[in-house]
Simulated scan of single mutants.
Amino acid sequence: MVDTLRNKVVVITGASSGIGRSIALESAGRGATVVLMARRKERLEEIAAEARELSGSEVFVLPTDMGKSDEIEASFKKLVSLIDHVDVLVNAAGFGKFDNFFESDMADVTSMFQVNVLGLMYFTRLVGRLMIDQKHGQIINFGSIAGKVPTTKSAAYSASKAAVIQFSNVLRLELKPFNVKVMTVNPGPVYTNFFNIADKTGHYAENVSAFMLDPDDVAWQVVHFFGTDKRELNLPLSLAAAAKLYNLFPSLGDYISLKVASRK
């Protein structure tokens, strides 16, 4: 695996923690030049130092709030001044908040869509045009099993991730003539700080501990599919199977979701 990504440029949003951080380090470990994007500059600089030791390649830090279009555009302009091509874009930035929809704060809902969907789409539009001109590249968008299987207290978050999944499906068709690949990654719950924001009670994380994924394991699988025609990666296998069953038997799926998957 060493140096399999040498001379490749990988851009990662949400790179300051969780899966984004793990993908950045996994890519660097394989020799890639990585570009790290997230809000926290100090945290990005720490990860950049780790990545440089792993790759021996340059690492670029672009502090960006993916919920703000002006920052996204400014970072893209900086990006194209630093590198001459992008091989892989990983859109890992995102967050969620769990609450009954009619008790949720609509400002939180708006922020979720701004980061999870609109920011992702805006940045993908900019980098995608670059890849069209290059006539190669790969875009990897993070959806979620929540975008496939409904659970209570996640209406807005699930809707945002379902939007990412369908956006990616259409994008795949539109970019195919230009040799630009699109893959969607739909993980179940992951051991990250996601739940510090999503579920402050801690109950949901405890209840789904049997399905929890390690971010480093997810990152390894994602990077493993760099450059391939893989359309979708659903993790873990148990929840991937549940998503398929839900489509086949939706009434049964609703019952199981209420009994098992909605214990937030």
Rank of each mutant, 00 (worst) to 15 (best):
A146G: 15
K148H: 09
V149T: 06
V149F: 02
P150Y: 09
P150H: 04
T151R: 06
A155S: 04
A156I: 12
A159G: 15
A159Q: 07
S160T: 15
S160D: 08
A162T: 05
V164A: 09
I165E: 08
Q166T: 13
F167W: 12
F167T: 08
V170Y: 05
V170L: 06
L173G: 04
L175D: 00
K176P: 03
P177L: 08
N179T: 03
V180F: 05
T184R: 02
V185L: 00
V185K: 00
V185T: 02
V185P: 00
N186G: 03
N186S: 15
N186T: 09
G188L: 05
Y191N: 08
N193S: 15
F194Y: 13
F195Q: 08
N196I: 10
I197T: 15
A198F: 11
D199C: 10
D199W: 04
T201Q: 10
G202Q: 08
H203Y: 09
H203A: 13
A205T: 14
A205Q: 14
V208C: 07
S209N: 12
S209W: 02
S209D: 04
A210T: 05
A210S: 09
M212G: 08
D214N: 14
P215T: 11
D216T: 14
D217R: 12
A219G: 06
Q221H: 08
V223W: 00
D229F: 05
D229K: 13
K230W: 00
